[in-house]
Design a binder for these strands. Structure first.
Length: 254
DNA sequence: AGCACA
């Protein structure tokens, strides 16, 4: 009995993720991807860009193939900014890993030669380091991979449920909610006051009001639109209210 | 839909 392979591509340190919501600012997406994927192991880098050809996709570069494989299995179809992530192994080796294992060769710049210009052709870049099935370097600083249980706890996602009905798992996971003009502020110091918070949040255009929830160290902050809310979120994420207390911001649930 | 590396 042969089972359906996880991927039609050979395992790779890098995962290729697409079907990402390209309405979301790429930096925001990268940050959220990191939060979600880091639960499976060390991440070297995440590459995502917003150009026409590259939007909606990201490359997650892991330190260990096993981590990539676990993430691939567990997060397949994970609802991320309201779209199920589609995950595969990357086709080729990332530059970052080629650099690390010494096989990196400078990528030829796309130079258009005059003759080719006439013919309407562009210089064909020779493929760089080949996509050899990530020769897993055994000696690698390996941070213990958190159990699958832990990520389910953190993001409220049970991979089993995707098999039959990925859409049914619409539960908005923590930290990956869809954009909203209202922000949810957590981890406030108990000394926080409305005035204090408006000072902070009114620096960002579109500010409307802040609602501190008594006794919960939590507040809601309204902006005129979700874009402005997003800007404020980026600007104030992790803001140190006191040396030991840092704000945690997300979009409020709808 | 789209496999990049600024």
């Amino acid at each position: 009995m042969s089972r359906k392979p996880l991927s039609d591509l050979p395992p790779n340190l890098t995962l290729y993720v697409n079907n990402l919501n390209d309405k979301i600012n790429v930096e925001t997406v990268k940050k959220s991807l990191r939060e979600v994927f880091a639960a499976f192991g060390g991440i070297t880098d995440i590459v995502a860009m917003k150009s026409l050809k590259r939007r909606g996709q990201a490359w997650i570069i892991f330190k260990e193939v096993s981590a990539a494989t676990n993430a691939l299995k567990s997060l397949q179809g994970f609802p991320f900014y309201n779209k199920p992530m589609r995950i595969n192994y990357a086709k080729t080796k990332s530059d970052a890993v080629a650099k690390a294992d010494g096989t990196y060769v400078e990528r030829p710049k796309k130079i258009v030669k005059r003759e080719d210009l006439r013919k309407g052709k562009t210089a064909t870049p020779a493929p760089a380091a080949s996509a050899a099935p990530a020769a897993a370097k055994p000696a690698e600083a390996s941070k213990p991979t958190p159990s699958q249980k832990s990520i389910q706890d953190r993001i409220g996602w049970n991979p089993q449920q995707t098999v039959t009905a990925p859409k049914a798992v619409a539960a908005k996971p923590t930290g990956v909610t869809e954009p909203n003009k209202t922000l949810f502020v957590e981890n406030l110091p108990s000394e926080a006051t409305d005035t204090m918070l408006s000072m902070l949040f009114r620096q960002y255009p579109g500010f409307q009001e802040v609602r501190l929830i008594p006794g919960r160290n939590v507040a809601f902050v309204d902006y005129q639109n979700e874009y402005q809310a997003g800007m404020a979120m980026q600007g104030l994420q992790g803001f140190a209210m006191t040396p030991e207390v840092k704000l945690s911001l997300s979009y409020a649930r709808k």
